[in-house]
Design a protein around this nucleic acid. Structure first.
Length: 638
RNA sequence: GCCGAGAUAGCUCAGCUGGUAGAGCAGCUGAUUCGUAAUCAGCAGGUCGUCGGUUCGAAUCCGAUUCUCGGCUCCA
């Protein structure tokens, strides 16, 4: 099959052929030969364009391995999905169908309720469309014409989008008779799609606004080879295996009961033990860093929350006030007003500052039922909160210290990678703009000084001030919001707090709110997933289990356990009448760091046989040797 | 809150179009006394999330409600 003399870069036969078929030949073929088979788009100064556009000689071809190329690829698959859906379910209306970081989706308006079986059908139809190798054809047409076309098809969401555009010309893409409004670019043809899978059906509001109609969203993902897809599906399985709700049950760490209420956590002994270790570590480090630990009440008069501004700006997250002998009280959503009250309890000198108050303060916030999620999104949680009161000249250094402290704590829990965001003034805010700007600058300077990479998150600050948020990346590369550092010029004003300066005049201190782990509940949930339940020794609720071969070894096992306990090691004995294989299995499933076997040989030599989590056999050693090894590991917190 | 799906033994789940429940694991008892991921046998265990309705009869159908899951939205 010969090509047209003026073959475009996207010539099907060409792009589908192997490199060996296009080595020598005409000048044109040489031009064409530089197009990689995997090209999904061409990068120009103005962004990505279709491969079949006339690209300059030095054009850069973008493949699936490029994040933007991946977007193009998946976006094309989303079109193919829409095509398949329109074939199978005539009359549906399409909203938007973008690519996301790990796949794509399309929002669909239809009376038909999609089922998992429908997904299989849609996938099958998509395979056919892929096999057909339809060209993606772009047409630039006047906006008015596009509106006419989509109106005719009854695609009201598309016309709504078109009506809001200002461009005179818009682009539409057509493939195998299916047409969609789209900025592009797209793959040269559907045959380039090598691996995809539809994953789930969900509801989604048109334009994400709950006042709008609820549409049906189908999520999927796509890769340029089967291996990529199966690796991703394997990743999803791993995510399921690590799910803290599942592990929380299997390892007996916590529960949330219907009887108690949604979003309220019951910490079981093992989870509580880990939490206590976390808290002990936290307290110890805070005292080292010159923080003072406070305890404050769980509720306060409504007036306090009015004064703080929470009642005006945070009410939607607060529970209804309760009447106490005719006075309104409010359960606390934050700890700050209490810390301010402590500050105000007597006059402060400039010499006292900075004052750093910290508290593991349990707060309650209203969350809509649909957003609750295990430990990651709850209604009652404990913040590792602190409020630093300092002079304006101290703010820069204090923020630097907090940043260092935060990164140290995160590192201890095994998080060494993070994304940092600087959130600026939101729409609803208190205080003057220039103070906001000054506070924002203080945060930004600290980040720059530490040489940390960060992104600006416009309008995402809290109502009282700008903030730095740190999202930790777990062992699967997922980002979790934990730490937050917030400057506040406003609460000091509202509560009229002061310190006496060296000049004898009264001055206003600046407040910094910060939480390192954020919420202990969430942080713990993230830790469970990060470690897949296999906590490092210092955090493991049970560090050692001593297992007997036969009943005659029970006394010795108890003796070993007792000796280890006296060394400060969390040890237990398994003297059940079971085979050692069974005990190893049970201990392994409980993810206990060290499983010790004691039998005749160990009993005689007063040793233990050590099996490390993961299966590595460390052989026999004395109880003392083993205990010292575990203690070293505990102390190093690794 | 909204859309969809779900809730059956301590856990994981089966139970077709209505005829009042079943498995594996865990638990208990007994046998076995065993060397690194499941020894064998027996026993016990559920008013099928809750409330109401339809029906001669409801785990099953209908309604309400609570909770869970996947999303939307929001956030520590």
């Amino acid at each position: 099959m010969g090509r047209e003399p003026k073959a475009s870069f996207a010539d099907d036969a060409f792009l589908m052929s192997g490199p060996e078929q296009r080595d020598s030949g005409s000048r044109e073929e040489k031009v064409l030969a530089r197009i990689p088979r995997d090209a999904v788009a061409v990068r120009t100064g103005g962004g990505l364009v279709d491969v079949n556009d006339d690209a300059p000689a030095d054009a850069e071809f973008v493949t699936f391995s490029d994040p933007e190329g991946r977007h193009v690829y998946r976006h094309s698959v989303s079109h193919v999905m829409a095509h398949a859906i329109s074939d199978l379910f005539p009359g549906v209306k399409f909203a938007i169908g973008p690519a996301t970081d790990d796949g794509f989706y399309y929002d669909i308006d239809t009376e038909n309720r999609f089922t998992p079986e429908d997904l299989a059908k849609i996938e099958k139809r998509m395979q056919q469309i892929v096999k057909a190798g339809n060209r993606f054809k772009r047409r630039d047409i006047p906006r008015e014409e596009a509106i006419r076309i989509f109106e005719e098809k009854g695609e009201s969401y598309k016309t709504e989008l078109l009506n809001e555009m200002t461009d005179q010309t818009v682009s539409i893409y057509e493939e195998g008779g299916f047409m969609d409004l789209c900025r592009g670019p797209h793959l040269p043809h559907t045959g380039r799609i090598r691996a995809f899978k539809l994953l789930s059906i969900a509801g989604a509001y048109w334009r994400g606004d709950e006042k709008n109609k609820m549409l049906q969203r189908i999520y999927g993902t796509a890769f340029d080879d089967k291996e990529g897809l199966s690796a991703y599906l394997e990743f999803l399985e791993e995510v399921k295996r690590r799910d803290h709700r599942r592990l929380g049950k299997e390892l007996d760490l916590f529960s949330i009961s219907e009887e108690t209420g949604a979003g309220l956590v019951l910490w079981h002994p093992k989870g509580a033990l880990i939490r206590r270790v976390m808290e002990d570590f936290w307290r110890q480090e805070h005292e080292k860093s010159d923080y003072q630990i406070l305890f404050t009440p769980h509720m306060a008069r409504l007036d306090l929350w009015k004064k703080s501004g929470h009642w005006d700006f945070y009410r939607e997250n607060m529970y209804a006030p309760m009447d106490v002998e005719g006075q309104d009280f409010e359960i606390k959503p934050m700890n700050c007003p209490f810390h301010i009250s402590v500050y105000k309890s007597h006059m402060r000198s400039y010499r006292d500052l900075p004052i750093r108050y910290c508290e593991l303060g349990t707060v309650y916030r209203f969350e809509r039922s649909g957003v609750l999620h295990g430990l990651l999104r709850v209604r009652g949680f404990t913040q590792d909160d602190a409020h630093i009161f300092c002079r304006p000249d101290q703010i820069g250094e204090e923020i630097l210290k907090v940043l260092d402290f935060t990164l140290f704590i995160l590192k201890t829990f095994g998080f060494t990678q993070y994304n940092i965001y600087l959130s600026t003034r939101p729409e609803k805010y208190v205080g003057e703009v220039d103070r906001w700007d000054a506070a924002t600058e203080a945060l930004e300077n600290a980040l720059k000084h530490k040489g940390l990479d960060y992104e600006i998150d416009p309008g995402e600050g809290v109502f009282y001030g700008p903030k730095i948020d740190i999202k930790v990346k777990d062992s699967l590369g997922r980002a979790w919001q934990c730490s937050t550092i917030q400057v506040d010029f406003n609460l000091p004003d509202r509560f009229d707090i002061e310190f006496q300066g060296s000049d004898g005049a009264r001055h206003r201190p600046i407040m910094v709110h910060r939480a390192l782990m954020g919420s202990l509940e969430r942080f713990f949930g993230v830790l469970v997933e990060h470690y897949a339940g296999a906590f490092p020794v210092w955090l493991s609720p049970v560090q050692v289990r001593v297992m007997t071969i036969a009943e005659r070894h029970s006394v010795y096992a108890e003796e070993v356990k007792q000796t280890l306990r006296e060394m400060g090691i969390r040890a237990e004995a398994d003297t059940d009448n079971e085979k050692i294989g069974y005990k190893v299995r049970q201990g392994t499933l409980q993810k206990i760091p060290y499983l010790l076997t004691v039998g005749d040989s160990e009993l005689e030599k007063k040793t233990v046989n050590v099996r490390k989590r993961g299966g590595q056999n460390l052989g026999e050693m004395t109880i003392g040797e083993f205990g010292a090894m575990v203690c070293r590991e505990m102390d190093s917190r690794t």
